[in-house]
Computed example of a mutant assay.
Amino acid sequence: MGVVIRRAGESDRADVVRLLDEAFHDDPVSSWVFPDAEHRRRRHGALMNAFLDLALDMGHVDITEDGSAVALWWSVPAGEDEGGEEGPAQLRAAVDPDNARIEEIGRLTGEAHPTDRPHQYLHMIGVSPRRQGEGLGSALISAVLDRCDQEGLHAYLEASNSRSRELYTRLGFHFMGNAVHLPDGPQLWPMWREPRPFGADGGDTGRFA
């Protein structure tokens, strides 16, 4: 039996934010955004909550039935610029006004984000540290990519480490050639995926409840 996936909504907010906070708290990018560990402990969850708001507003959120993995997707039309110049500043003001890095990472990733074709944007995918390595992330992504293939839609994401980059490559994404370099920090790899003939990757690994 495949992984059972359902669409998350407002009633799932506390569980989704808690999962994202746990999954990304020690991630190199989160550690760069909040270099002070105590400050990260206090404000990281607020950033995850804001990201959930964006996904619910601009796309959708998929979660495994047992709540152990979640993916935040945006539906991006052609010409969309992720909120323009004001978006990162508004996010900073809402989450941590004195933290310029929130605005900076939003600006840098926004500049790298392609705008010429509509696509599905995998903004974040988080798996409980206790459940990593079980294929839950692949199942969440593949469920949406199957729909992209059926509908002829492109997909985009930023890989934050070499391990995830390898996974995304196996799922049909390719590195776009210019990494996003965070000042004195890690880098992100923008990756793009063309739609495949449906079923070319062996079919879905997840099913929706």
Rank of each mutant, 00 (worst) to 15 (best):
I5N: 03
R6K: 13
R7H: 14
G9C: 07
D15C: 00
V16I: 15
V16D: 09
V17Y: 06
L19K: 01
D21Y: 08
D21V: 11
D21E: 15
E22T: 08
D26K: 07
D27P: 11
D27K: 06
D27V: 10
V29K: 05
S30F: 01
W32M: 02
V33L: 14
H39Y: 08
H39R: 10
R41I: 01
R42Y: 12
G45E: 00
A46C: 00
N49I: 02
N49A: 12
L52Q: 04
E65I: 06
E65T: 00
D66W: 14
G67P: 06
S68K: 13
L72G: 03
L72V: 05
W73R: 04
A78W: 09
A78C: 05
G79E: 07
E80I: 07
E82W: 12
E85Y: 08
E86T: 13
Q90P: 02
V95P: 11
P97V: 08
G110D: 13
P114E: 07
D116A: 05
R117V: 13
H119E: 01
Q120R: 15
Y121T: 02
L122S: 04
L122V: 07
M124H: 14
I125N: 04
S128K: 13
P129G: 05
G133K: 11
G135R: 12
G135F: 15
L136P: 11
G137Q: 08
G137V: 08
A139W: 13
I141W: 13
S142G: 10
V144Y: 09
L145G: 00
Q150N: 02
E151S: 01
G152R: 04
A155H: 10
A159R: 03
S160W: 02
N161S: 15
S162Y: 13
L167C: 11
Y168Q: 04
T169I: 04
T169K: 09
T169V: 08
L171S: 06
F175Y: 14
G177M: 10
G177Q: 05
A179K: 01
P183D: 08
D184P: 01
L188C: 10
P190G: 01
W192C: 02
W192N: 02
P195T: 09
P195H: 07
P197T: 13
A200E: 13
G206N: 08
